[in-house]
Design a binder for these strands. Structure first.
Length: 747
DNA sequence: GAGTTTGAAACT
DNA sequence: CAGTTTCAAACTC
């Protein structure tokens, strides 16, 4: 996953900036694209979004928090001049207005599909005409709730984001604010790519899956992320899903998605892409009277090399007038994709949600999904009412919740390349306040051309809770499997101290520490705000999670500060975020400290020493004094033996405890259900009330007989005691018998 | 748990 | 680049 943000552009060193993109990015708008109708109605997309029975129909919700996206024109006829403008109002309304496309987008819109939305009662109307302009290779998602918003979007355009990816399943989720359109730049076969292409050897292109989620209605931000994967098999379809969840709580959000299905003809290698709307998780097929898919042609090299993916670009930029100063354009080049893997996407349809996620064991421990959710409509179930479909746009309320979408994705062992490219040098200076991308970089590389997976767009300074996240499939999958994620996502995860507190909340009666796998130890920073390398969390590119730090800024709430801190660290040391323990020179140990230690008093045999802590020996680059951390060191060997012995001992103890606990539990489970009474008495407890009463009856009977026979008191006592003894024996015998029976039954 | 030690990071 | 300071983890009691 890569993160690119306008702010980051300004923060990152100059060397990472690709000036070529600056020059070429504006040209993409004028790129000519041949639009071809796509007749492939199949959508090879896997999603677990609950199908909406009336997906093709208007869906209404009682809250204003719902996002409505309805194409007025039910026919998404193939258009060669198509641009999609999706404008959403501050009330989480998503409207599609073709008119905006021509006015705000620097593209010519000759053919447009418009959609309208209605508000019923508490619902807000959504007039959602939109246009798909294939001529310009752009899909512009503009969020304009009102005329003012539309104007604002026109006048104040955030820096466009150009994302180029190759063979990478791309998932982009975002929750933008109003007035910020998102333009999806579709590369043209004949047009020059605005972004430097890193692959493409002329072979067949592998399928790509791009999912763009625009959460919330208040703001749309250009965000694009991607991950690169190697293509292992030829695929004939590519999916691009644009998901537009609203800024409403999960329970009331109806994500609107566009599934762009790319079909590559194996014969003529002419890629075709169809845009299919998905409402409330239901794909509106071509047969749908509401939103028939549109077909556009993607300009992609007809590569046959599966290992390389042709250049596909997605430019997400605000609608801005051409006269405006050019805003920075960021490009993401993605490596090849292949194989079959599912990428799970978690929509950001949460209320004012700042989600922090850490993936245990993953190189990138966090993925941030931020939503600028405003008020939510209480009582809006995910299965909101769906109105009958009409040709006009229809509001819909989709199930929010943890909408999960899985698309085939191939693992990408290789790094994808992110090449941020401002259109102009001045573009960097022009910090779009609307642009609230959020950057989350698990491990920030000094050179963005080699960003690791996990890059996330970050918001501009002063930005709200809007954000975008590009989630590699494997991480998202892990996220959903993580209890922590569930906890965070379900409770409006708060960053900073609140986040930490919340993360510690017990989960199902078990402490979070027991149920959540934490990638590392919690930090205890007090003065560094967790924004310096003193903080292990920060140094490892992680958010603080379940830490004990104070005044923590290493969270989503302080991404601006965090970005600055990252920039500062990178300025100071470009290798700051790279692993310290790496492979040494040839002939040396496979693992060694990149910088070496400087220990003076510890003899490098304590955890103060980073080499020793990493369980590696000091190397020639270490500047330690009195080092004892070398191969032949007797002290080291002794320590190693002691450590090994201690470890074995601990393991044995742990195993013994586990075994004992298991046995006890097993024993209880076996006996309790069978023998215990309804009152919950433990097994073998046969001195129940009934047994005691019966015993007493027996004793009293003996007493009565002794009295009737005028026996001596001593004789009566003897008889009664004997009877008591008999009773006890019966009890013991019965208990033993019952135990044996229960054991046999359970076994 | 409080205090000390240590060395990396940050600063000058 | 070197010396100093700051910082948080490791360690000791």
């Amino acid at each position: 996953m890569d993160v690119v943000s306008p702010e980051l552009n300004s923060l990152l060193p100059d060397e990472i900036m690709d000036t070529e993109a600056i020059e070429e990015a504006p040209q993409s708008e004028s790129a000519a694209v041949q639009a071809e109708p796509c007749y492939d109605s199949t959508v090879p997309m896997e999603t677990d979004v609950p199908p909406n029975p009336s997906a093709s129909e208007d869906v209404t919700s009682t809250g204003n928090s719902q996002t409505l996206l309805t194409p007025a024109d039910s026919t998404l006829s193939p258009s060669r001049h198509s641009s999609i403008l999706i404008s959403s109002g501050p009330s989480r309304l998503v409207t599609l207005k073709p008119g905006l496309a021509t006015s705000t987008a620097p593209t010519k819109t000759t053919d447009s599909v418009t959609g309208t939305s209605m508000s019923t009662g508490g619902l807000q109307k959504l007039t959602a005409p939109f246009t798909i302009s294939s001529a310009n290779h752009q899909i512009i998602l503009n969020k304009v709730a009102s005329s003012q918003a539309a104007e604002a979007a026109k006048s104040v355009a955030p820096p466009p984001q150009v994302i180029k990816q190759e063979g990478q399943k791309l998932l982009v989720t975002t929750i933008g604010k109003s007035g910020q359109p998102i333009v999806l730049q579709l590369p043209h076969a004949g047009s020059k790519p605005t972004v430097v292409q890193t692959s493409g050897d002329g072979k067949a292109q592998t399928p790509q899956f791009k999912v763009v989620t625009i959460g919330g209605a208040s703001e749309l931000k250009p965000v694009v992320g991607s991950g690169g994967n190697q293509v292992t098999a030829v695929q004939t379809q590519q999916l691009k899903t644009i998901q537009i969840p609203k800024k409403t709580p999960v329970s009331s959000t109806a994500p609107i998605k566009f599934i762009i299905t790319k079909t590559v003809n194996s014969k003529n290698l002419s890629p075709q892409t169809s845009v299919t709307p998905v409402i409330a998780g239901r794909v509106v097929t071509q047969t749908s009277p509401v939103m028939p898919p549109r077909t556009i042609t993607l300009s992609e090299p007809h590569n046959t090399n599966l290992q390389n993916i042709s250049s596909k670009k997605i430019a997400i930029s605000p609608l801005k007038t051409p006269s405006k100063s050019v805003k920075p354009v960021q490009s993401v080049a993605v490596g090849g994709v292949g194989g079959s893997q599912f990428k799970t996407i978690i929509p950001l349809a949460t209320q004012q949600n700042v989600q922090q996620i850490q993936v245990p064991g993953s190189r990138f421990h966090y993925v941030r999904l931020v939503t600028a959710t405003t008020s939510s409509s209480p009582g809006q179930p995910s299965t909101s009412s769906v109105q009958t479909g009409e040709q006009t746009g229809k509001p819909m309320v989709g199930g929010t919740g943890a909408v999960r979408m899985s698309v085939p994705v191939v693992q990408a062992p290789t790094m994808k390349q992110v090449v941020p490219k401002p259109l102009t040098s001045a573009a960097q200076v022009v910090a779009a306040p609307q642009t609230q991308q959020r950057l989350i970089m698990p491990a920030i590389q000094p050179n963005l051309t080699n960003l690791p997976l996990g890059t996330v767009l970050a918001p501009a300074p002063g930005g709200g809770n809007m954000g975008y996240a590009v989630l590699p499939a494997q991480y998202v999958t892990q996220l959903q499997q993580s209890p922590f994620v569930t906890l965070a996502s379900s409770s409006g995860f708060q960053a900073s101290s609140g986040m930490q507190t919340q993360a510690k909340l017990p989960l199902n009666g078990v402490s979070a520490a027991e149920t959540t796998t934490r990638p590392r130890k919690p930090c205890n920073c007090t003065k560094s705000q967790c924004l310096k390398l003193y903080c292990d969390c920060f140094a490892n590119g992680e958010f603080c999670n379940m830490c004990n730090c104070n005044n923590c800024f290493n969270n989503l709430e302080h991404e601006t500060e965090r970005l600055k801190a990252i920039k500062t660290c990178l300025d100071r040391n470009p290798e700051a975020f790279k692993p310290k323990i790496g492979k040494g020179k040839e002939g040396e140990s496979d693992r060694r400290h990149s910088k070496g230690c400087n220990c003076k008093r510890s003899g490098c045999l304590k955890n103060y020493c980073e080499c020793y802590e990493a369980k590696i020996m000091c190397s020639s680059i270490c500047k330690c004094i009195g080092c004892k951390n070398f191969e032949e060191s007797p002290e080291r060997k002794t320590l190693m033996h002691l450590a090994d012995a201690a470890e074995v001992r601990v393991q044995q103890q742990t195993a013994a405890k586990t075994k004992l606990s298991s046995q006890i539990s097993d024993l209880l489970m076996r006996t309790t259900p069978v023998i215990s009474t309804g009152s919950g008495r433990l097994p073998y407890t046969f001195l129940t009330k009934e047994v005691v009463e019966a015993t007493c009856e027996c004793l009293l009977e003996k007493a009565r007989k002794a009295e009737q026979t005028h026996q001596l008191t001593s004789e009566a006592e003897r008889v009664i005691l004997e009877e008591f003894g008999h009773c006890l024996m019966n009890i013991i015998t019965s208990a033993g018998k019952a135990k044996a029976d229960s054991a046999s039954i359970n076994c």
